[in-house]
Nucleic acid binder design. Sequence first.
DNA 1: GGTCACATTGTACTTGAGTACAATAGACGA
DNA 2: TCGTCTATTGTACTCAAGTACAATGTGACC
Lengths: 208, 208
Amino acid sequence: MTKDIFVTKLGQLLAGWQLLCPEAECYETIEQLPMLRASELIYWLHVDANQQDWMCDSIDFLKKLDATAKVIVLANVPEQQEAMLAFQHGALGYTHAYHDPVVLSQVRQAVEFGGVWLGQDVLRQLIQVGRKLSERGADSIEQTLKQLTPREREVAIRAAQGLSNKSIASELEITERTVKAHLTAVFERIGVKDRLQLAIRINERLSS
Amino acid sequence: MTKDIFVTKLGQLLAGWQLLCPEAECYETIEQLPMLRASELIYWLHVDANQQDWMCDSIDFLKKLDATAKVIVLANVPEQQEAMLAFQHGALGYTHAYHDPVVLSQVRQAVEFGGVWLGQDVLRQLIQVGRKLSERGADSIEQTLKQLTPREREVAIRAAQGLSNKSIASELEITERTVKAHLTAVFERIGVKDRLQLAIRINERLSS
DNA sequence: GGTCACATTGTACTTGAGTACAATAGACGA
DNA sequence: TCGTCTATTGTACTCAAGTACAATGTGACC
């Protein structure tokens, strides 16, 4: 069955955690974790305020250790920004470390069954961004890119991402000269001077 | 206590739903819903494929009817895009309509306790978008620019807007050489190769 | 007084990007 | 079949960008 592993500097389980899963293991650092694991694991990462770096590194570490690892972050001082970071690095849950066992249990179950758990404020932040993407971003960019031929689009997108002509060429397996040719056409069609303007044009659609 | 209300064109509860909450009410359209509600409610909205419009309207309707309403979408044919839409309109959960009661129970509990529930693929999509916000969003941009001296900032911002060295020079009333000097320092400090990368770093924020 | 961060400018150099002026070949509709 | 669109590549050129290796002046802080 699924097993719980807590990593906390406190050195022992909080009362709430103990109620949640009495058989959990507890370690003070990720380095102390045993390497080989048989069962499916849920890692609970307890982070204090301003430990984003450690948190990210730890999640990365756990993911590398065990690709199927499910990581839940327990934040002493929950912050939206930190939550976003955690999810970016592959955490599946982010919640207050001192929530009562009932809530932690929801989090655990959601994660165990392949879902994720996040607070409403984090969701709202994500949604807000998502809306911008679908309102302005996608549409306008498509509008802009629709003027181009398929090949030109491929080149334009890569150029806008900051790739050099040489990189684009080798990625598309064509000559650098051809890349230039496509780009010249793109600039003309889109109405920009160079790749910098192109990048701004394509990326700016999405900002603020 | 919390009460469950199902809205489904089927006219009756699916077996799984019935197991989940035997006392649930069930309606075929949102118009049939009784207006006045005392207890806290969870609305389960059952949507067939390609009913995004109806889904959005329904969620909006429920939210207007009862601001504290918690809406969970049960999708016959779950799709990322549709999930995004649902969350944008304020749904707190989105899951497969035919999931077994165990999973639905997780969803319900997560939502009941103030969280949300979404599948990993949806999260990943959101995160991908959200990453830009936290990496290069407003806060982070300031974070990035904070590493620079005031003068370097002025130059960097203009360069990121697509201005040429010459333009920046005349705008700031300094030599083109000085602009170059500042930019070289900026690239070094920010960790980018050239002005294109700088522009992407500063402007891109939300791009796909 | 001396160190240090910051802003400024110079000359000479390398290099990636983009243009001018081309040519060739396949696909596809009129 | 012919013209148009698309994709491809070539040589030679210009030019903005960026680097190397500098120097000078100013104000803050110890």
